[in-house]
Every structure is written in C-alpha cells, then in structure tokens.
Amino acid sequence: MKIRATLAILLLSALASCGGNDKPAPIGAAVAPNFQDAKPVNFNSPTPARYRVHGIDAARFQTSINWSSARRNGVNFAFLKATEGGDLLDPMFQDHWRGAGQAGVARGAYHFYYFCTSPEVQAKWFIKNVPRSKGMLPPVLDMEWNPFSPTCAHRRPDASVVQDEMRRWLKIVEAHYGQRTIIYTTPRFYEENKLASFKGYEYWLRTTAKTPREAFPGQSWRFWQYSATGLIDGIKGEVDLNAFSGTPADWSAWLATRTLK
C-alpha cells in the first residue's frame, strides 16, 4: 500500500469559506493545497510546504480530471502538455485545456523540444495547436534530453547550438502570444547546456529530491516541480505537483502582468 502523506500547508483564512462551495474560486484567488504524495520526500529547507500557491502539470497520462474538484482542492494553476517536436499533439491537451478553463484554473501550455526538427517548425506547430486565449499563462518551452525518442534520443548538440535553437523558437512564439516564455528544465540539462548564462527568462525547475537552491545553485525560479507522485481528489492516478515561488499576493500580482490580455 502506498504511503499517503498530507502536504501540511496553512489554509488561507480569507478563503476558508470556499471549501464547501461548488462554485470554483476565480482565477487569481489562491486556494491552499489539499494534496497528498504517494512517495513523500523530506526536503531540506525551504520545503514545498513553505509556499502557499500550488498547482499541477498534466499530459496524456492524466486521463481523467475533475477540474472543479481539483480546483477546490488547491490546484491554482496547470501547465498542460500541448506539443512535441514538429508533429505530435498530446491527445489530452484539448480536453485538459477546456476543463481547466471552465473550472477557473489558471492554465498554460508547454512544448517538449526535439533536436531533430528545426525550431521554426516546432514553434509553428505549437502555435497551430495552442489557442491564443485571454487569461492564459505564458507559454512554456520544455528543455530536457529525450532518451525515449527512436529518432532523437542520441542527438545532443553542443550548448551553443542548444541555446541558439532555443532563442529561435522563443522569438517566434513570443511574437505570437505577446508574452515572454517560461523555460522548464532539469538539473542535468541545465548544467550541460550552461543555462545559468541564459538570462532574461523565468524558470520552472524540476527537482524532486533536492530543493532548487541545492539542485540549481544561484538560479532564481518562478515554479518548482517537486513531485511526480501527487495524489489529488478529482484526479485519477498520480500527477506532478508544483509550487509558485511567492505569496498569494505575489501570485495575484504576477498573474496581472504575465497572463494574456
């Protein structure tokens, strides 16, 4: 039997009345997380519990999400996998996009980058499949090595090439959505491609055993993916858990400047 450990975070007193209300909280109203974890980690300080605004990311593996229930249980935001490379569309993207929007979850889309397709083709594919919706979060560029692709698994360009391709993709996508992209990455990819020198972007960092401070020394972050084994009422199976770097007030202020108008 899996161990289920409640994520201990103080409830926001101003939102206490939301718990029994079927109407979803509006976007920007931070609901404290009522999450559990199948494989909890004892992080050094600062732990995920220090942060009061949490959310998820979801893809085809999350085949059933009751978004209203997830919202009531503290899913304030969701980054949804949209595309891979130049021709793959996540089969659950459209359902997740619609459901999150209807439930008042701040939603954004991410693209998983391939090194066997030009950044221009990949950028256009993302734009083709992700609607330019009012209130959406900034687009996300997911940069990590892909060991599972039959065609791209062993293609790992030098850091200078990686950064050049990133800039080309970012330029096209940012021109379309009118927002600066968020970059998602892993410790290994970050180090091997010298992303500490890739300035001017907010980062979404994956580190499920160490804090961002330990795994990415000196790197500021906006979102922290701290678990791949989250358990949330309304979501079938396990899901990635993420924390926002600031307070509920910071979250509202960030949304005011970083969502599509």
Rank of each mutant, 00 (worst) to 15 (best):
R258S: 08
G99H: 07
H96T: 10
L12N: 04
V130D: 06
F43A: 00
W204K: 06
P40Y: 04
R167L: 14
A29P: 03
T186P: 07
W221Q: 06
A209Y: 08
L12D: 06
R213V: 13
W251I: 01
G28R: 03
V161I: 14
G101Q: 12
K134I: 14
D240A: 05
A175G: 11
A14E: 15
M166I: 11
C18S: 10
K39M: 00
D164T: 15
P46R: 15
T229W: 10
I3K: 15
A175C: 07
G230I: 03
A159R: 14
A70R: 04
Q36S: 14
F61M: 07
T257I: 12
D37H: 05
Q163R: 15
L205F: 02
A5I: 14
C152K: 01
A103H: 07
I235T: 01
S220M: 08
F61H: 15
L231D: 11
N193L: 07
R155E: 09
C18D: 10
A78W: 08
A228V: 00
V31E: 04
T185Y: 02
Q219R: 12
Q94V: 14
D250V: 03
G20L: 11
V130W: 09
D240P: 02
Y113P: 05
F35P: 07
D250T: 09
G246S: 13
R52Y: 05
I182V: 06
R222P: 03
S69Y: 02
A253L: 05
R213L: 11
G28P: 01
P139I: 03
V239Y: 06
S220V: 10
D142P: 04
V41R: 06
F35W: 01
S13N: 12
T117L: 10
R60G: 13
W67E: 00
N34M: 06
L15N: 09
G86N: 13
G86P: 05
G237K: 03
A243L: 04
D233E: 15
A109S: 12
L89C: 10
Y113N: 04
L241Y: 07
S68N: 15
T229A: 07
A82V: 08
A103E: 04
R168K: 15
G20W: 08
F189N: 09
K39R: 10
P91H: 11
Y110G: 05
A8D: 14
R222E: 02
S149I: 09
A153E: 13
G234F: 08
I27A: 04
V53M: 00
L255F: 03
R60N: 11
G104L: 05
A5D: 10
S197Q: 13
A25N: 08
F216E: 05
A175F: 07
Y190F: 15
S64K: 13
A29V: 14
T211K: 05
I182H: 01
G104D: 04
G178Y: 01
I172A: 02
L10Q: 13
W125C: 06
A209F: 11
S45F: 11
G234A: 14
Q102W: 00
Y190M: 09
W204T: 07
V41H: 09
S252C: 09
P48A: 06
R180K: 15
A59Y: 03
H54K: 05
D37F: 04
A14W: 12
T208E: 04
F35S: 05
R60T: 06
F77R: 05
T117E: 09
